[in-house]
Computed example of a mutant assay.
Amino acid sequence: MDRKGKSIYHLDTPTLLLDIDKLKENINEMAAFAKMQGISLRPHIKTHKSIEIAKLQLEAGAVGVTTAKIGEAEVMAAGGMKDILIAYPISSEMKMKRLIGLMEDGVDLKISVDHVQQVEWLDAFFEQTSYTLQVWIKVNSGLNRCGVEPGDEVVQLARKVVNSASLKLGGIFTHAGHSYGAKSIEEIEQIGLQEARMVVESAEACEKEGIPIPVRSVGSTPTYKIAGQVKGITEVRPGNAAFFDAIQVGLGVTSFDKCALTLLASVVGVYQGSRVVLDTGSKSLCLDKGAHGNQSVSGFGHVVGHPELTIERLSEEHGVAIVNGETSLSLNDKVLVIPNHACTVANQFEEYVVHQNGVVVDVWKVDARGKVQ
């Protein structure tokens, strides 16, 4: 069925909608910031998982893309992306063989390292091939997930890499994901500054030992405009900033009118004027209410134009909203819901219905949907 030219309100539900004007505005904002700072932009595609959107980001000035998993990198490579950072630790032989496949396809590949044994295993594997693998050292800047500690641990791992036979040290990077747990804009600013300093100081410590660090890269949508202004940083890697979502609004990073991704939902039940049920449950809206210990939103999505509704609970196929006061909604009415977390919601759908001013202009695949290996 050809949906182009139709009003979004004539579509079946639930449907994943993407506002093309807001998307391009967000992409251009990231690119403009990087250009203004004289640094590179390498956006993370785990948010959108779309070849079409990645192409828009490259056209706007991105030097390449970041992925979380090899599967995402394989999809992006098949879509023409040639400069890819896999920002995830890789050490199994099964996955190393897949890295070879990407390099055979001409991808300028970089991967994350944060452990001496990982470096040893990568070196031993790639020494048996004709390839030299570029690795970037992941620094723990406070998230306490992956990454070596800044300073001496970075230098020790850098020495291990430069003394290896088949690895090349390309950069140092971090992800300040703990910014999602911040309680204020001021705390986000502090995290962003700390994130950048840990990368820059680690790079400087390496260079004092004669180990050059060409790339000093930071990420995180809440912090990239803060960390990206610190002298010595050469690259930013925001992901969610392409779409934004209710969590970013809750953190004070953006506003609802900049959120490009919405779900079109139908009212499937109105009960005693106190409860409205939508056809978007946990299989479409997901269960995020914040991240890293911070519930920065109220409910499970923001219902556009209906402040009287709070989506209080989700089952698999039902979004149950309580009504504070009165609502004009009735059975079969359609509403737009801004998801709490755009990244997880996009991964639930096979396609984006792209619209401009509420009229469908295209349909794009969520190409890397489900690519978690």
Rank of each mutant, 00 (worst) to 15 (best):
N240C: 11
A242S: 11
F243W: 06
D245G: 04
I247F: 05
I247M: 13
I247H: 12
I247P: 07
Q248T: 13
V249W: 03
V249P: 01
G250A: 02
G250P: 01
L251Q: 13
L251E: 10
G252E: 03
V253M: 07
T254M: 07
T254K: 05
S255C: 12
S255Y: 06
D257W: 14
D257T: 04
D257E: 09
K258F: 13
L261R: 13
L261F: 08
L261W: 04
T262F: 05
L263D: 02
L264Q: 10
A265Q: 00
S266C: 04
S266Y: 02
V267D: 02
V268C: 08
V268P: 06
V268Q: 14
G269D: 12
G269C: 14
V270M: 03
V270P: 01
Y271C: 05
Y271P: 03
S274E: 11
S274W: 14
R275H: 08
V276S: 00
V276D: 00
V276F: 02
V277L: 10
S282W: 15
S282I: 07
K283S: 11
K283H: 14
L285F: 15
L285G: 05
C286H: 14
C286F: 15
C286I: 15
G290S: 14
A291D: 10
A291L: 12
H292P: 07
S296E: 13
V297M: 11
V297N: 06
S298V: 12
G299W: 05
F300H: 13
F300C: 04
G301Q: 02
V303T: 01
V303M: 01
V303D: 00
V303F: 01
V304I: 09
V304R: 15
V304A: 09
G305W: 01
G305I: 00
G305R: 00
P307K: 10
P307D: 10
E308V: 07
E308W: 04
L309C: 02
I311S: 00
E312I: 09
R313I: 14
R313E: 12
S315K: 04
S315L: 08
S315C: 05
E317Q: 09
E317V: 14
G319F: 02
G319L: 02
V320G: 10
V320W: 11
V320L: 11
V323S: 04
N324E: 11
N324P: 04
G325S: 07
